[in-house]
C-alpha cells in the first residue's frame, strides 16, 4: 500500500516501449486486459487503504458496533458487491477477446524443446515455415493454433495478448492482434526444462499480407 503510488509511477516509466511489458499493450486484446489491470489496481488500493484505516481506528477506545455490521455488512454484502462487479467485467473482457468464427487469419505455432516453428499461409495457399519468428498481418485479429512436440510450453506475446499453453496431444487456439507494424517479443511462459529461459521468439507484424519475405530480408 505504502508503495502504491510509487508503483504506478514506476509502472508508467518502466512500461514504455519495452519488449515484454503487459503494461505497454500494442493491440486491442492486450489493451483490454491492461485496462482491467489498472481498474483492479485502483480498487485494490482503495480496499487496502480502507483496511489500514479500520485497523488504525481499532486502536482507539472500544466501540460497540454490533457484529452483523462486520460479518454481514462488510464481510458478505460489501465483498459480494465488489466481487460481482469485478467478475462481470472480467467475463465481458474475456468474451470480447475470445477467438471466434470470423474468418480471422490463422497461423500455427509448434513448440519444442527448445524453440518454435511457426507457419502462415502464403498468397498461393502454401504454408510458409519460419523458426522463432512468427509473421502476422497488422490491424486484424490473428488466431494462433498452438501445438507441442514434447512437453508443455506456453505461447506468450505480452504486448499483444495473454498466454496459451502448448500441450502435446492437443491444439489450442488464441487470438492476438497488433495495431502497428513492427517486431514484438514473445517467450515460452511454462517451465519446460533446461533451456526454458532461452525459448524466446519474435512476432513480425506486416502491413502487407501475406508478406514478401525475400524483400523483407533485404
Amino acid at each position: 500500500m505504502r508503495g502504491a503510488s510509487a508503483f504506478i509511477a514506476f509502472a508508467l516509466l518502466a512500461g514504455c516501449d519495452t519488449g515484454l511489458s503487459t503494461l505497454a499493450p500494442a493491440g486491442p486484446v492486450a489493451a483490454d486486459i491492461a485496462w482491467l489491470w489498472w481498474v483492479m489496481l485502483a480498487g485494490a488500493t482503495l480496499i487496502t487503504v480502507l483496511m489500514v484505516v479500520l485497523l488504525v481506528v481499532a486502536f482507539g477506545r472500544p466501540k460497540d458496533t454490533g457484529s452483523r455490521v462486520w460479518t454481514h455488512g462488510m464481510g458478505l454484502w460489501f465483498s459480494l458487491t465488489v466481487l460481482t462487479a469485478l467478475l462481470a467485467a472480467g467475463l465481458w473482457v474475456g468474451e470480447r477477446i475470445q477467438p471466434r468464427d470470423d474468418d480471422a487469419v490463422v497461423v500455427r505455432a509448434h513448440a519444442f524443446q527448445w524453440g518454435w516453428e511457426f507457419s502462415h499461409e502464403a498468397a498461393d495457399g502454401t504454408a510458409v515455415e519460419s523458426n522463432d519468428l512468427l509473421h502476422i498481418p497488422v490491424g486484424v485479429p490473428v488466431d494462433v493454433l498452438i501445438t507441442s512436440e514434447d512437453v508443455i510450453h506456453s505461447f506468450w506475446v505480452p504486448r499483444l495478448a495473454g498466454k496459451m499453453d502448448a500441450i502435446p496431444g492437443r491444439t489450442n487456439r488464441t487470438r492476438i492482434q497488433a495495431d502497428e507494424a513492427g517486431e514484438y517479443d514473445g517467450l515460452c511462459a511454462e517451465f519446460c526444462g533446461l533451456n526454458h529461459a532461452g525459448m524466446r521468439f519474435s512476432v513480425q507484424a506486416h502491413a502487407n499480407w501475406p508478406p514478401d519475405l525475400n524483400e523483407a530480408e533485404q
Binding site: 500500500m1 486486459i33 482491467l36 489491470w37 483492479m40 485494490a44 487496502t48 466481487l83 472480467g90 495473454g162
Partner: peptide
C-alpha cells in the same frame, strides 16, 4: 489482505492469461 486482493485479480480470467506463470 494484499495477497488476497491479487488473488482475486488472478481469478479474473483475462488478467490471469497475462499474469499466469
Amino acid at each position: 489482505v494484499m495477497g488476497g486482493l491479487t488473488g482475486v485479480m488472478l481469478a479474473i480470467v483475462p488478467f490471469n492469461w497475462q499474469a499466469h506463470d
